[in-house]
Amino acid sequence: MKQSKNQASQYDKIFKENIEAVIPSLMQNVLGITTVLREELPDDVQHTKERKPDVLKKVTDSLGNTFVLQIEFQVSNESEMVYRMAEYYVMLERKYKLPIEQFVLFLGSSKPKMSTNIESKHLKFDFAMIAFAELDFHIFLNSTKPEEVILSVLANFAQETPENALKQIILRLEETTEGDLSLKRYFKQLRILAQLRKLERILKLIVMDSIAKYIDEKKDVAFLIGQEKAQVKFVTNLLLESDFTVEKIAKIASVSVEFVKKVKGAITIDK
């Protein structure tokens, strides 16, 4: 899955903003690490290195083991990932003189295709990779933290349809968030992450009925809330499922051309 630089920066921004809130749950429920002590470590492992670790902490678990924990969030397959992780491993072990535990959390919708090990004459190395698409979305849905709830959209919906899963996620966000401004922020993050699963169109249709009052009227469908919902849905379906011109859709739906243009603008996927 190829991502534009703008998209990648949006995903990075979300995880940077939310990481401290979600890291305890990720460690416990995804990585299987029960911590009793956790200490932030500086991420300047090497000043000349272009990329820094996404998460770097000194951890003592419930068994008394102390180690350096590194977590990387990866949206797409990177052919050089195993070498990057090996570089991190050597630098971290050299600097901290502690055992190193490394995890790559793959956020893509397909199975990761990256190699996780090196085996040559003088070097054997491997790291753990976990695909979000294989995790039960209830792990995050049942959280009391909205930062975790939005991660549900990246997990496995199992027997749920995308529509039902998204409705549950939206409801849970409303239940766990205090204040309209915060809720608006998490809805925006949810829409961005939904792009990784190609669910943004479904989400926008659900938004029209359930959370339109919270959405930025310049970018989303909230400004359509005063319009007849049946007309909005009808025009939306024609725009998504046909090649009709705006003028023809306006005629079929018995609405103005300007109305069709507004709906079209609301459902256009951000590039």
Rank of each mutant, 00 (worst) to 15 (best):
K213I: 08
R191W: 10
F106Y: 09
F137H: 08
F106S: 04
L205F: 12
P146F: 02
N156Q: 05
S182K: 15
K124Q: 12
K184N: 06
V153W: 06
L203R: 05
L171S: 12
Q189K: 11
I211P: 12
L151N: 07
L171H: 11
E200I: 12
N142Q: 08
E147Y: 00
R172I: 08
D220W: 13
E163W: 11
S110K: 14
T177W: 06
Y186Q: 04
S115N: 15
L105K: 01
A222Y: 09
L154H: 04
M129Q: 10
F127I: 07
Q195G: 15
A131H: 07
K184V: 01
Y214I: 01
R185G: 04
Y186H: 03
S109K: 14
M208V: 14
L224A: 01
K124T: 13
I211V: 15
K145M: 10
L205P: 08
L123K: 11
V149H: 03
K198P: 08
S120K: 13
D180V: 13
L190F: 03
R191T: 10
D126W: 10
S143D: 03
L205H: 12
N164M: 05
E148V: 03
E175C: 05
K218F: 12
L154W: 01
F157K: 11
L135N: 09
K218M: 12
A131D: 10
F157G: 09
G179E: 03
S120W: 10
A212I: 06
H122K: 15
